[in-house]
Amino acid sequence: MSATPFDIGVNSFGEVATDDGRVLDDAETVRLLVEEAALAEASGLDVFSVGEHYRAGHVDSATPVLLAAMATATERIRLGTSVTVLSTNDPVRLYQEFSTLDAVSGGRAQLVLGRASATESFPLFGYDIADYEQLFEEKLELFMRLRREETVTWSGAFRAPLTEQRLTPRMRSGGIPTWIGVGGSPHPQPVGQHSLGLVADTDEEAVETWWRYWQPVVTALAEERGFYAPTRARYEAELADGALYVGSPETVARKIARTARDLHLSRFDLKYDVMRLPRQARARTIELLGREVAPRVRELLSDEPAGVRPGTAPR
């Protein structure tokens, strides 16, 4: 039986890594991300995506530049965002950046647009967090018009109006694939899921490695945002039935396949980096996800009746 069409990728929030206990500096981490995109392609993955953050320990604040560097180091893998904070970006500039990236990469660019869960970009770029929803809705409407229409006349509350504006360089016909990032229930297909996790040769190695580096990050977030404080029992519950995908290739593959069936997914991205995770563990996750997990997931999904198979991601 042929494999079910299903995309599997990785995404990064540009979190700094360690190498033999030494914390890499920002420039080293930027270069590491480019190497990891090339490794993801060599391992057979479909997509490499980068987030957008403006806090210490993250180097993904200039995502289009990072993705352009990755485009020159790769040939096949699709390159996107996870997510672009549309609310504090200018849709005109965003269009120009990603039409340029799409040209540089030979048509491999894509976008996930979101409102932001980390909100440092609002004061940084002079936006009021009170306008959180209105900013996103207005800018989404403008971006989609720019993506679909040759010339645009437009006015809104948060930027200068446009009159008969034609942007260059032009996106390809129909625009680049664009998803909306949400933090709740899935919308109509195609639906993709992004979750955190680590793949190692054994369940024990993966579980202990991820706990060592994930626990302090979530502890800090709990204090900042009022999340639950991480406990070992809660962690193990997340591994069994929650949103963490941590384990051997077989364990992770079975959990991804189960989720894909339940939510009718067309794509799954694993966020493989967490603050100060050793670069060797990051690389091993990418390799195992592409070479062992992805083929196994497709094998498991290929056994499903056609009526419940996941949909096909946009190309």
Rank of each mutant, 00 (worst) to 15 (best):
residue 86 L to N: 07
residue 140 L to E: 07
residue 52 E to S: 10
residue 65 V to A: 10
residue 297 V to S: 06
residue 306 A to S: 06
residue 13 F to K: 12
residue 173 S to A: 13
residue 81 T to V: 08
residue 15 E to I: 02
residue 107 G to D: 05
residue 172 R to H: 05
residue 101 L to T: 10
residue 223 E to D: 09
residue 57 G to C: 04
residue 256 I to R: 08
residue 226 G to A: 05
residue 126 G to Q: 03
residue 200 A to E: 14
residue 219 T to Q: 12
residue 282 R to M: 14
residue 150 E to V: 15
residue 288 L to F: 12
residue 308 V to L: 01
residue 195 S to L: 12
residue 186 P to C: 11
residue 147 R to K: 09
residue 212 R to T: 02
residue 48 F to N: 06
residue 230 P to D: 03
residue 227 F to V: 07
residue 312 T to A: 04
residue 186 P to M: 09
residue 32 L to D: 14
residue 37 A to T: 02
residue 30 V to I: 12
residue 231 T to L: 08
residue 142 L to D: 07
residue 50 V to W: 01
residue 50 V to H: 01
residue 195 S to R: 13
residue 161 P to A: 07
residue 107 G to W: 14
residue 38 A to M: 10
residue 14 G to D: 07
residue 184 G to P: 14
residue 67 L to E: 06
residue 300 L to V: 01
residue 313 A to I: 00
residue 79 L to N: 14
residue 272 Y to R: 07
residue 188 P to L: 03
residue 69 A to T: 04
residue 276 R to S: 10
residue 67 L to V: 00
residue 127 Y to P: 02
residue 102 D to H: 03
residue 277 L to W: 01
residue 170 R to M: 04
residue 62 A to S: 11
residue 185 S to P: 13
residue 35 E to W: 15
residue 315 R to L: 01
residue 275 M to W: 13
